[in-house]
Design a protein around this nucleic acid. Structure first.
Lengths: 200, 200, 200, 200
DNA sequence: CATGAATGAGCGTTCATTCAT
DNA sequence: TATGAATGAACGCTCATTCAT
């Protein structure tokens, strides 16, 4: 009898149920009863797996971030030339709200909480760091200007978060493919001028 | 006897109290009792001025947006050369989270609600439209490329919202003055290449 | 300036407004604000004329009973032969819910309160006594049997109250004219047998 | 482990508690807190068994009506000659306010609500129909006149409701045994004359 | 006299959490 | 493990009553 791992499976079940509830009804309308019903378990058992609602909510966020991260890795890393990696990365950033709207929804639902809840805040900041680090890595291979490497990744991620927010709240605001092209264009122009200027 | 406007003053009092509560404790921990205590009034009187908690919350958002808008107008509009206006505008966008952290806090607290609450969503979308329209206006005088005018404003605002979010959650993430310079640089580079390319 | 009586007029205005509110929305949904709005006055002034909501409610009941009483007097008393008076009285009893549905509505709304509120209870009991006394008076001229005079009036009034209640809650339950005929028939039959039996 | 029916027992407990509260303090002074205290449970659990206060209140009325109905069935149905059944029925009608004062109290408390609450109104009307139907059944065996069968039952029930109301508000108004005799006398006289007249 | 802003206790209801089974 | 009945504090909201104007 494969009892080992059963607990993890159950936990994942509850986390997924909670995520679905957040996506469909919002974090502020999330009740343990709803989660239990969605997961097909009793409310009591949730407390066997998670200390409290807050702990469960942390795990939901963690799981969301992990899934998103894995997705990025799968599509960007296999590519070879550094420029291609960067471009694919920029494309990914633009596509998040369309390809993974649930991710953006969860993210936005936690934003307000992040300000006052140190645990959530720390987790979100860790995500920001991860994202900028990866972007920095990809940039590292197409430029050598230290100053650029410092702030440009943050700017790119900021752009992704901001436009993702806007598109999630109104997906007729802009055409994602067009925006993708613009972003690539803007970044490329900037790098060209900077690197070109250096070369001359 | 200056009775006229008394109601508006009282309403503003309550709205300000609610805003303070949101900033200090978060939207999800906001109770009418807290607001009343913060405003120094009874819970009952709030319902004399506002139909419901939801209506009050809408007014809080509206008020936040209006104040932010006024601030921008004051600093950008008096300037004269279009390039200066655009640069001041970009600077303002970068400075929002530092100069007006309460504004960003309120904004972030409403993001999660905006997804499922149509009224809040509509108001946030209206804000996005306003912001991009203004940015478009300033860009209009430094470029003539229609395609750029379409998506570049959105990109700039997206950048402002995203970086504002990141900085609000971790104000050691980057130096605002440096980021300001980078943004101006990136936008200027892009416009230079595009306009330069057109001229040739 | 005819100030005298002004107070009474105002009071009547408020009482009428309260009655209208009870009829249209029910006693349990009656608020002082509603009454004030309906009467076209402020809530404050109501407390100038009536000590409390309860006192006002008493006056509403009193007024209702008085109006109903006056109506009966107008139609029954002018008639001359005693039998005619009794028959007209029985007819009136049957017609109350149709001719004066507002009276029945007010009455029914106060029934529950009468049980626990001694003042209302006393007033309702006084009404019952009035009604049975009048019925007794009319009967007095068509029979001499003391025992009949004791309980028959109560029975007749009980019938009026009960059927009035039923008809008010479902005015398709029976035809009022038919019921009128039946009541007259039943009472006449009973008196005929009793008086006839006595005579023989 | 007798788990089955436990829910029904609990529900009945709460309904009984609510009924007791209505009897002792009145429907208009009935709070969920009172009911919970009277039932010896928490306020929260009531909402586990009943959707809302209104639903609970409906069940209270239903339960009251059912109990009253059962009582009538027990005493009337076993009797054999039809005349005896009718007389016992008339007796029962007279005895309700004395034997079952709580039933009358509950009934009177709901009267005002019945006018504006469609659900209560429907339930009360159903009770009226039941009562008149039963009365009609008993009459059916002692008379053949169709017209009598149509309205006489309603008249008898109206009488019961009206006098029950009066007696509940003042139980010194009349002697129930005397009134019982009078009612039987009146009905018997009427039927005698009608049937006698038919026979001639 | 008259207003209506202001109070605050109390309402019906919800829900995170516990615990007997 | 697993259930869901049970708790009770806290919520949004109402409204009889008061009082400064």
């Amino acid at each position: 009898m494969p009892k080992v791992g059963m607990e993890e499976i159950r936990k994942e079940q509850v986390i997924t149920a909670a995520k679905n509830c957040i996506v469909s009804k919002g974090l502020s309308n999330l009740s343990m009863k709803d989660i239990a019903a969605q997961a097909g378990v009793s409310t009591g058992i949730i407390y066997h797996y998670f200390e409290s609602k807050e702990v469960l909510l942390m795990q939901v966020l963690k799981s969301s971030f992990r899934q998103s991260h894995e997705k990025v890795m799968e599509t960007v890393e296999p590519l070879n030339p550094p420029e291609e990696k960067l471009m694919k990365h920029l494309e990914n950033i633009n596509l998040v709200p369309k390809d993974n709207p649930e991710y953006m929804t969860v993210f936005l639902n936690y934003m307000g909480e992040a300000i006052h809840n140190p645990n959530i805040r720390a987790m979100v900041n860790k995500l920001f760091k991860n994202l900028t680090d990866y972007t920095g890595n990809y940039l590292q291979h197409v430029t050598t200007d230290e100053q650029q490497l410092k702030n440009l990744p943050m700017m790119i991620i900021g752009f992704g978060i901001g436009l993702g927010t806007m598109w999630t709240l109104n997906n007729e605001l802009y055409d994602i493919e067009e925006m993708d092209e613009l972003l690539k264009d803007v970044i490329t122009s900037y790098l060209a001028i900077k690197n070109g200027g250096d070369n001359e």
